[in-house]
């Protein structure tokens, strides 16, 4: 699986001026993309902070923009640990993170422990109506100050997802939707689904992360990640 990701590097090293020019032309148009080469086409992702996950994600990391679904059978499976490095880099770049209707109260000391400045975090409480939550999500995508939008919505119709996807794409923002149940025929806007489950019953600290669908991946890949490595086990 790694072969087609590393291929262009070796190609470029060999290539002369002419093929470099062709690459440049190919890369200049964002609407033209080749499935075999995501990393070389401007889909440079944010590193996830987990090397195993980076290696199975196209673009070697989280996508820069668009909508992402994270599916876990229940809340609290480690889905936020997975995103902590991303949150840290967003905050460090001076942008804000909007949390939309998180299921429990967000605990500031934990975020500070993870090196996240809580002064750049906004929380829309869970008792806000779903319509308002989606509205604020779309608005957040449209402002340049929001670097990341986290939303907890169990079921959203395809048209809504599509609309959010468009907003996130045009606003250059990454939106993460946390879901409990997997919907196999979830419409196209979803780029990435990450499923977690404990691999071994006796060894708790690892979680299985599966990339069900991502632009640039042809089949689902999965890996085991130690999510709580920074904490004492």
């Amino acid at each position: 699986m790694n072969s087609y990701i590393s291929a262009p590097d070796s190609l470029q090293a060999k290539a002369g001026n002419a093929s470099g020019h062709i690459d440049q032309l190919l890369n200049s148009n964002p609407n033209l993309w080749r499935g075999c080469d995501m990393a070389g086409q401007g889909f440079h992702g944010h590193s996830t902070g987990f090397s195993q996950l980076d290696s199975i994600l196209p673009g070697k990391g989280w996508p820069q923009k668009g909508l992402m679904e994270v599916i876990s059978p229940q809340w609290g499976m480690g889905e936020l640990q997975l995103l902590l490095p991303l949150m840290r880099s967003v905050i460090d770049s001076g942008k804000w993170i909007l949390w939309i209707s998180p299921p429990h109260s967000v605990y500031a000391p934990a975020l500070v422990q993870a090196g996240i400045d809580t002064n750049q975090i906004l929380v829309v409480k869970i008792d806000a109506s779903c319509k308002d939550a989606l509205w604020s999500m779309e608005k957040a995508f449209q402002t340049e100050n929001c670097g990341l939008v986290l939303a907890w919505q169990n079921w959203l119709p395809g048209t809504v997802l599509r609309r959010l996807q468009l907003a996130a794409d045009t606003g250059n923002t990454l939106g993460v939707i946390f879901k409990k149940n997997e919907c196999k025929h979830s419409p196209s806007p979803t780029r990435l689904q990450i499923k977690e489950s404990s691999l071994q019953k006796d060894h708790f600290s690892t979680a299985q992360v599966t990339v069900l669908k991502a632009r640039g991946n042809f089949r689902s890949l999965s890996t085991d990640i130690d999510l709580y490595s920074h904490q004492l086990a």
Binding site: W96, V106, A108, P109, L111, V112, T118, N119, I121, L122, V123, V124, K125, D127, A128, D132, W135, S136, K139, A140, T143, N145, C146
Partner: peptide
Amino acid sequence: LNQFMEQLKARLGDNYLKGISC
């Protein structure tokens, strides 16, 4: 940013939009 927050506040109300701190 300020305009964005004001708009959110206008729509959601003070009680639903909060920041957090230690």
